[in-house]
Design a protein around this nucleic acid. Structure first.
Length: 284
DNA sequence: GTCCATGTTCTTTA
DNA sequence: CTAAAGAACATGGA
């Protein structure tokens, strides 16, 4: 359980990819599992070669690679492409020497013209995936659109979404409404805003919603400042084990004392997910 | 052997 | 239409 890719973790990956490969050209691709490419693209490895990475960006928990036409500089209309990556629950993107030992479940390796290291995409559970679109596949790319990005979610937008009566936790987790929040940062944001995860969204006051929007932004920004890899720091046990407790006030702390009031943190299940909260602080 | 965890998508049920 | 619950996917760690 080394990676919990929610928005901050994905943004960290995107930043690293951007700094390493934007402007570089893919010269070789090895796809070890054809079915990891979710769009029908039987010749995927061929199709992405000789393309230049025009940009790397994030949309919710999705990673987008904008690719030039094969061969590089001249962009013929319609021959560019986009590639969407999703880390799922166990996806990892790393840059390693081409002769470095291969991690298990490495599904894709990309080598570049300039960069010495190769990009590796591994994913043990294969809940992630790769989607490939031709420049002309606009409709396919727009399908399953994401909601507002969690990092820049405004109180006004959140208020619109909160017309629904479903539990606020379940609403925050719905990627078609808000893109980027997962189980950990949901629980943390609700604790920070002192809201019970089962509160019906439509029953939140304007003040509740403004507080929650601020909490979401603050929790995500704090995680971003810490490189978005809180659990990894914890597991690494290299002297930074305190990181976990510093960053998580409720997630994974069932039975522990609330940092604010010392009551025991409780765990319930909402929408099939473990949900951690303080029954005292989050009674509203 | 059991239970649990992450995220998404689909089906069933109301 | 909303929405909630459950299953499915796959793997590894406790």
């Amino acid at each position: 359980m080394l990676d919990m890719p929610e928005l901050p973790e994905v943004q960290t990956v995107v930043d690293e990819m951007h700094s390493r490969v934007t402007g570089d050209t893919i010269v070789a691709a090895v796809l070890s599992r054809a079915d990891y490419v979710r769009t029908p693209t039987p010749d995927f490895a061929e199709r992405i070669q000789r393309r230049r990475i025009l940009s790397v960006s994030r949309e919710g928990k999705r990673i987008w690679l904008d690719l030039s036409a094969p061969g590089g500089r001249t962009r013929k209309a319609g021959s560019d492409a986009r590639c969407r990556l999703h880390l799922g629950m166990s996806g990892r993107i790393t840059f390693e020497a081409a002769d470095a030992p291969l991690a298990p479940h490495t599904h894709l390796r990309l080598r570049f013209r300039r960069l010495a290291a190769e990009l590796r995409f591994s994913d043990a559970r294969r809940f992630g995936g790769i989607w490939f679109y031709n420049g002309s596949d606009g409709d396919a790319m727009r399908a399953a659109r994401l909601g507002a990005d969690a990092l820049t979610l405004s109180a006004g937008t959140l208020q619109e979404l909160c017309r629904r009566k479903r539990p606020i936790k379940s609403l925050l987790m719905d990627q078609s409404l808000i893109g980027g929040l997962g189980n950990i940062y949901c629980d943390e944001a609700l604790f920070s805003a002192r809201l019970h995860p089962l509160r019906r969204a439509c029953e939140l006051s304007d003040a509740d919603i403004r507080r929650l929007a601020g909490s979401i932004r603050d929790v995500l920004r704090r995680a971003l400042r810490h490189g978005g890899s809180t659990l990894r720091d914890y597991v690494r046990a290299d002297g930074r084990a305190g990181e976990f407790q510093r960053l998580h006030r409720v997630y994974g702390r069932e039975g522990h004392a609330c940092a604010r009031c010392r009551r025991q943190i409780e765990r319930i299940v909402i929408a099939g997910r473990s949900t951690h909260f303080c029954p005292q602080c989050q009674n509203g």
